[in-house]
Amino acid sequence: MTGNPARLTSGRLVAALDLPADALVQQRIPKKMLADNGAPTPADRRLIQEYIEEATWVAALKPANAGVPAYEDPTRTYLELAVLAVQLRSPKQPNGASGKIQRLAELLHRAIPYPALLLLEDEDRLLLSMAHIRWAQKESDKMVLDGELTLATLLPLPDESGPANALAQQQFLEALPLHKQARTDLYALYQGWIDTLGAWEAVAVSGCFVPSVSPEHAAQRRSALQRCRELDASLSQLRSKAAKEKQMARQVAANLEIKALLAERQRVAASI
């Protein structure tokens, strides 16, 4: 991404994290290593090989350089947090790219043995992905995702010319620095970043950036955002069905259902 110094890039996002110099690694990651560690099928290996231009291990946050204790429970050990930057090849079919990026993010989180802040960038887009991981139950040397993947688009903005979205993006960046996160342990630190990314996702619904005030607030917002996505999918299906319906009675019924779902979405969105 070039031409606009104010435009958000992976470099600006890393700078906003305000990481200690000792944590910076800047080491290229071979795609073969990512494929060997994270791709369970030939199709997944092809996705990594064909869709990634370059992958870089930007930083490794450890207790020694971050001043944050490690974390361990019966299912996981967080000895460090990774920051990865992945340059993507621009898709030949942009409209079909979102599903591939989702899958690619899942594979990369599984390929790295540490929780990762994963930056995905091409000529037009910048995304940030995070997911807790744990050891697989049947394969102790394999990592699996623990809970939902949080994958958020930072660019393009919903309305890139809108000042409200630009302000929200700046507020998001100002909420990212390491010194503003929980420092109980590396799990709490990582969860804080996930919650901050969730607050950014909520901008698309609420129109403003509001940091989480507690873990309970963050969990409630995640639930509300998920419900909004479900309602949006249902509304899209109903509108398509109503447009094709020829019988008046069924059109009326579909429109009433749409109205009810819109009312529910408005109630849910108001709680975000």
Rank of each mutant, 00 (worst) to 15 (best):
A166D: 01
G38M: 04
A164H: 01
R89M: 07
C208T: 09
L84F: 11
L189H: 03
K246S: 13
E121G: 11
A60T: 12
A233C: 05
V205E: 03
L178A: 05
P5C: 14
A224P: 03
L262G: 15
V252W: 08
A188V: 12
S140D: 08
R134N: 05
K244V: 02
V252C: 11
G11P: 00
M33A: 13
K246F: 05
S140A: 09
A202Y: 07
S240A: 13
L154W: 06
L88C: 15
N37T: 07
D122H: 07
Y190F: 10
T153G: 07
E160V: 04
L24W: 04
Q26Y: 09
F209E: 01
A35K: 11
L186T: 03
P177A: 04
P211I: 12
L120M: 12
Q93P: 06
W135Q: 11
L81I: 13
A116R: 05
A164F: 02
A202R: 14
S214L: 07
S236N: 10
A218G: 11
S214V: 03
L120E: 04
A224M: 12
P177R: 14
K31L: 14
E160Y: 05
V205R: 13
D232S: 03
D185C: 09
D22I: 08
K246I: 08
E264D: 13
I101W: 08
Y190G: 01
T2Q: 15
D22M: 08
I52S: 09
T153N: 03
L47S: 10
L88A: 15
L155S: 04
L88E: 13
Q171H: 13
Q27K: 14
L8H: 00
A16P: 03
L79W: 12
L104Q: 10
V210L: 03
Y51D: 10
A116Q: 09
D122V: 10
R267N: 05
G11N: 09
